[in-house]
Computed example of a mutant assay.
Amino acid sequence: MKRLCLAILSAFLFAFSPIAADAQDKRGQVTNLPLPRYVSMKAAEGNVRRGPSLTHRIDWVFKRRGMPLQITAEYGNWRKVQDRDGAGGWVHYALLSGVRTVLIESEMLPVYARPDATSPINAHFETGVVARLGTCSLDWCRISAGGYRGWSLKANLWGVDPSEIRE
């Protein structure tokens, strides 16, 4: 009985300790920003390395300015990123931008005038289009690309968390 009480007390104390809070709200060691988080490619080309230094081998090169990426780790001036397909590695922070973009994941995605599926359609975006991310509610995000803008259901976009709200 005594062991059971100690186990319950230990579990309770851990659940409300700073260590448990850190596990639930992970932050980067360098920037103190939330991890994971989304950014975009600032450069037209960016080397993706196996490790966080210039001495590590280049595995491939991202070649799309504005492409949304997810940062999963930080080390000095390096950020571990991954794309929509989960492919990634270490990229120098200077190649990344805080400007938020999303990747369209639905074929001929309707972009509405208002966050309402009964409102007029402003445009249709093809799969793979990179769009600039604006305001987001729980279900809808305002996006723009190619001179067109409007609202899309968040579920059709990669580069924004399902519960993320942006003003």
Rank of each mutant, 00 (worst) to 15 (best):
K2Y: 15
L6D: 07
I8P: 00
A11W: 10
A11C: 15
A11D: 03
F12A: 15
L13S: 12
L13P: 03
S17D: 08
P18V: 11
I19N: 09
A21N: 11
A23L: 13
R27F: 01
R27D: 00
V30F: 03
L33C: 07
P34E: 10
P34K: 13
R37M: 01
R37F: 04
Y38E: 02
S40R: 02
A43Q: 07
E45V: 06
G51C: 09
P52I: 04
S53T: 07
I58W: 01
I58V: 15
W60L: 08
W60R: 10
F62R: 00
F62T: 05
F62H: 05
R64I: 04
R64D: 04
A73E: 09
A73R: 04
E74W: 02
G76S: 12
G76L: 05
N77C: 04
N77T: 12
N77S: 13
N77M: 12
K80H: 12
Q82Y: 06
D83E: 11
R84V: 14
G86E: 02
G86H: 00
A87R: 13
W90R: 03
V91Q: 01
V91M: 00
L95I: 04
L95W: 04
V99M: 08
R100H: 09
T101I: 03
T101F: 05
S106V: 13
L109Q: 14
P110Y: 06
V111K: 01
P115I: 09
D116A: 10
A117D: 12
A117C: 07
T118V: 12
S119L: 08
S119G: 11
P120K: 10
G128V: 11
V129M: 15
V130Y: 06
S137Q: 08
S137L: 10
W140M: 09
C141Y: 04
G147T: 07
Y148L: 10
R149M: 13
G150V: 05
G150K: 01
S152Q: 07
N156C: 09
L157Y: 06
L157K: 06
W158D: 05
V160K: 03
D161F: 12
S163M: 10
